[in-house]
Design a protein around this nucleic acid. Structure first.
Lengths: 340, 340
DNA sequence: TTGTATGCGTTATCAG
DNA sequence: CTGATAACGCATACAA
């Protein structure tokens, strides 16, 4: 009579000659436990290859051992980077990763997410930008009693619920790089209105220009929406300026690719006639011609940090300090000194 | 005394004046049910906004209402496309999506997956290429009693467990396109050994060349591993051939990007001096300069079909026919007639 | 430090 | 057709 199914806590208890509760204590690392019995139980657990049934635990604890990833981010590489970072931490735990993309345009979105959270009762949820900037969503999680961590381009929640990069400062550096190369007429392709990342990156540009005493006006800031096409349109506008800018900072790589496209259509050489810097360091950046100088931010590292906060293994965050994750400028071939 | 938590099956039973089991029958669409009682129970369910607790169902049924996505695919866009396709179908159901990336290089992989499946007991699993080609993995799922669907470049399982594209035929068309444009010296950058997709695509090339009566030899087929760098290396080799090929078919876009890179480094104009066709139609294809002619295959459509097979809503598959998903050649600017 | 009784929300068994 | 009762596997209160 071989047992076809998985061993349960009862099997362990019986073989170890203890009660279920004692086994339960061992599993949950209760500190009021005789070392001997703990060893004995652990021995049996190892022999049996016993693993607690997550569904049963979820039922008893009214809490599912999953982390939910809620996002509306169109950048596949970012989303997958986050998934990998999260799973790297979750891999050695009892947690699994549930993905739940949402549609920001849907008026029912919050209600839909509420139902999702009430049904699944995830242990924690990870909020990706741009939806992570939605305070109503954060409030919803809080009201349901679901812990969450938000990811963003700047801190907009308390440290234990936030992993943030420092886009503004990073862009200041990037613009500084252009200025050092001799550029004075530097334009920017901005991100969509209402996106914190767009705001931060544009602010970084403005601060850098002001700090260097360089003049600029509204026409130097072309609106974009993070898409390739919008990057092309913005670049058309910028290259129609006279005098023509010698450098463009694009708020993401996708739009930078559009900028390169337009420049090439106009017969401009990059970087000889126009320097370009992007943001994100998606794969396209290195595959473009010329390879794009861009800003790389530590997606997976941030996701790992977020996972640790979610499952509560993080230490040292209690002091209320925001740990900003620093980005780096990846220098490739799309920047040179202005030719004139 | 308001109930803070969700209504349960007991609440429904009490208010409807029936037993739990009857409510359960309603939920599970049992056919042995009086229409009146069914209506009454459904009424109460609607009033209460009751939803069955998935954790409790999972425990009782020994089966979790989730679909697991197991993959080792490095292409973020593909993986996310599949996730979206899957979720489009799952959205209106009780199912959730669990993601479980694996590492093909890990000798413990199968054991790890087995533990995952035994713990989570997913309702079904979706296997992405290239790991989907692993028959041991499929066997493992089967032995555990977990239904699965494999995704691939050609059928290698029974229809109800397979969604397949038709890479070979698609590549034949692509090569035909080059031949029609006047190319005779067409080389190919192959995918990694042991990958079914690589084999299918290479076979498509060979078949097309033979069908057109065009000679080719081993040196025209350069090995690659689907990475940008390998695409560069392969192209170096191919462009060292004399006479030089006038066209290159790359087994994926990433390597095609590498090919464009190398061509450009050598001062070759595309498509004037060299025509290039890729495969996958990832975003990079349209963002490259020149925009890449490539093959687009219906990832999301295939994922939707897979989801339907997994949750058993599919009809008409019982006849044992493989429904192949057709890819289309996206004609952009990287192909022209040979200049000489 | 350990064990007993009970509950978590659902489904299955087997009577009525 | 319907309902009482027992699983499902684990955790918590309360004793011992």
């Amino acid at each position: 009579m071989t047992k076809a199914s998985q061993p349960t806590i009862n099997d362990v208890a019986r073989l170890a000659g203890v009660s279920k509760k004692t086994v339960s204590r061992v599993i949950n690392n209760s500190d009021l436990l005789n070392e001997d019995t703990r060893k004995r139980v652990e021995q049996v657990i190892a022999e049996l290859g016993y693993t607690p049934n997550p569904q049963a635990r979820a039922l008893a604890l009214r809490r599912n051992f999953v982390i939910a990833l809620i996002h509306d981010n169109p950048n596949a590489q970012m989303v997958l980077g986050v998934q990998h970072g999260l799973l790297e931490v979750l891999r050695d735990t009892e947690f699994e990763l549930l993905v739940h993309p949402v549609d920001r345009g849907d008026p029912e979105m919050l209600g839909e997410i509420r139902r999702f959270l009430e049904r699944q009762r995830p242990y924690g949820v990870m909020l990706l930008p741009p939806i992570s900037e939605n305070d109503q969503l954060a409030g919803l999680c809080a009201s349901i009693g679901c812990r969450y961590v938000r990811m963003g381009s700047a801190p907009f929640d308390v440290p234990e619920r936030m992993v943030a990069s420092n886009d503004r400062e990073t862009v200041r550096h990037a613009i500084g790089h252009l200025i050092e190369a001799g550029h004075r007429h530097i334009c920017v392709i901005a991100g969509p209105r209402g996106f914190r990342s767009a705001l931060e990156r544009q602010s970084g540009y403005e601060e850098a220009m002001k700090a260097a005493g360089l003049p600029f006006d509204r026409t130097w800031i072309a609106p974009g929406d993070y898409t390739f096409d919008s990057g092309m349109r913005a670049t058309e506008r910028l290259l129609d300026l006279s005098p023509r800018p010698t450098a463009i900072f694009s708020s993401n790589d996708e739009m930078a690719a559009g900028a390169i496209h337009v420049a090439r259509q106009r017969g401009l050489e990059i970087p000889a006639d126009l320097s370009i810097i992007g943001f994100d360091d998606t794969t396209i950046a290195s595959h473009l011609w010329p390879p794009l100088t861009t800003v790389r931010w530590p997606i997976e590292t941030m996701a790992r940090a977020a996972a640790l906060k979610l499952i509560g293994n993080s230490v040292g965050d209690e002091d209320g300090e925001h740990a900003l994750f620093l980005s780096t400028l990846i220098r490739r071939a799309s920047v040179a000194a202005p030719s004139t």
